[in-house]
Design a protein around this nucleic acid. Structure first.
Lengths: 184, 184, 184, 184
DNA sequence: TATGAATGAGGATTCATTCAT
DNA sequence: TATGAATGAATCCTCATTCAT
């Protein structure tokens, strides 16, 4: 599973052969089918495992009843932690979710997407209402920018890099919340 | 070409069959080979056309000798304009460039990437030096955030949407430069 | 198609490889897929072609309004003619129809079976009613005997053998109608 | 063995997986190999057990020195009894014997076939010679008809049906010996 | 320019079989 | 006796590509 996730993330799902996964796992291609029904079911398990954990974290944050700004901070931090733990799965999700969510088997991807939007967009909107966040920005656009930046990080993040997930989250939040311009 | 780009963007390069492209173009698969050498060469032409135009725009901006902040604004605006004009190509680039740039044929992708980094990172660093941008942020991290957010926009941007590229750029810049927090 | 039918009949559908069919047809296995969607669709086309022709013949007989005995004679003769023309298809039908008719795609096999039973059993019952056929035999059992014997003939029939279909039909009818016992 | 025979009969030998047999027998596929050498040896044992019993019965009949008509009656009755006892094996035999008898391992199928033909054809010929059976029918054709009808019965016979094997034999013999036509 | 037919190299998957435990 | 994990050959099918017409 972890092996397969790495290969999928590195080469893309379609470009990855079952043989390659098996090689990497030290067995023959046919042997994989003792453990998995199909290539697709490997993918499914990777993604659903990731999403389950992601939502466990998100739900905790959302249930905490924090103010909008603190909620946003917590969501961002939690997201970078998930990227740290599931880098490969996140990368796969980024590349494949769009065309996968059309298939009935991957319906849950679209469901997750909707819940996700509700959580983030809701937080931003609450922030605008409580005058924590600026009202002159298009919330929907802001949501997209924030969402994308967080998740695309999976494409360059290296778990053994010089920045911890928390540090990355801190820097990112600082940029998004306060801007990069010097202020006197 | 345009047709192929759309299909590649929608389904991914590997998942797109030559037949599908031909169907969409109203001919048979074999007939494509009168116009192109191979599936890969279609991809190459799509990407290089896009990159050529992108660099024409960027080079103009960079040659203008603007201050860091104005350069950043111009680069972002130019980028969203390119997304508007080459949405499909940008989407393909996002998904495929990483594993393509390994091949000799697509060396130019890596070259472009390097030039790209030099232009953006350089601008940010100049900004820090001239005290236009904050010095307490990791520049490299900021670069990645900004770069990603701009380009991933290709995945949700719709040319006929309610926001013009310039408007999107304006909002994005406002967020990144000033932050989303309300300030008194 | 004819080639495939021969091979299916000789070796059984499951035991026949696509490669074998292609070999026999003088092409490569992959080339078959230009003409057919799948191995199964070859089978389907073979069987449906046969059944269509069979029913064209049967319907003519049934529409002629003959007396039961003459109807039976015509059905038997028509059947042996179909065996002569579609020997391979009939042999395949015999071996595979039972487990195929479970699949939705081959629903029409079961439909045909039902029409078939109605035609033959109906004729026998009419014959009993008009006192052309004996009333002391179980009609259903008789139907099965007659039906089976006719169609299993496909397994030994050779188109270039010494008996024409009509001659075989004549002998068979003579046996079934009059018995093999010498009568004084 | 009995389990395997049922599955082979229902789905065909080739279409039956070793795993399916094991499932049905309440064990894992690998465990079967403690009891059998191979899938083929299961098949062989099923068929040879059946043929041994069949010939025990036939030999008793043939050794009794009956007149042709009585011999025929006894053979038919004995056959339906065997179908009653070995329905699955007979069904398998019907479907698979042709292409199996090519293999050296299943030579005995062809041998049996020859002995079988000798017994039945011989009985019919003796009957023609003693003027018990009609001389105007092609004996060989009659043999095939009779043989087929008897054995194909395995495909529809249900041990718990409303007719005993003896009753089926009686009806069948009545049809073949006397014909289905009403006689005054 | 386009077609239709083929090619052939893979790719996912199946399955009888093996074997250490 | 049975299990679970693996093997590897074979199978169906896909698809980029070729080429005579």
């Amino acid at each position: 599973m972890a092996t397969a996730a790495e290969v999928f993330a590195a080469q893309g799902y379609n470009a990855t052969t079952v043989r390659r996964i098996a090689d990497e796992a030290g067995m023959l291609a046919g042997s994989l089918y003792y453990h998995f029904d199909s290539k697709e079911s490997i993918l499914e398990e990777i993604l659903s495992t990731f999403l389950d954990e992601l939502w466990a974290g998100y739900d905790t944050v959302l249930a905490a009843g924090l103010a909008p700004r603190e909620t946003l901070e917590a969501l961002v931090t939690e997201s970078f932690r998930e990227i740290d733990r599931h880098r490969a799965a996140v990368a796969i999700y980024q590349k494949e979710s769009r065309h996968l969510s059309a298939q009935p088997r991957f319906r849950y991807l679209a469901d997750s997407q909707r819940k996700f939007e509700k959580a983030w967009l809701g937080t931003l909107e609450r922030g605008v209402a409580t005058r924590a966040f600026r009202a002159d920005l298009d919330v929907r656009l802001t949501y997209r920018f924030v969402r994308d930046t967080v998740w695309v990080a999976a494409s360059w993040y290296r778990p053994d890099g010089q920045h911890s997930p928390e540090e990355i989250a801190r820097q990112y939040l600082s940029m998004v919340l306060d801007g990069i311009t010097v202020r006197e």
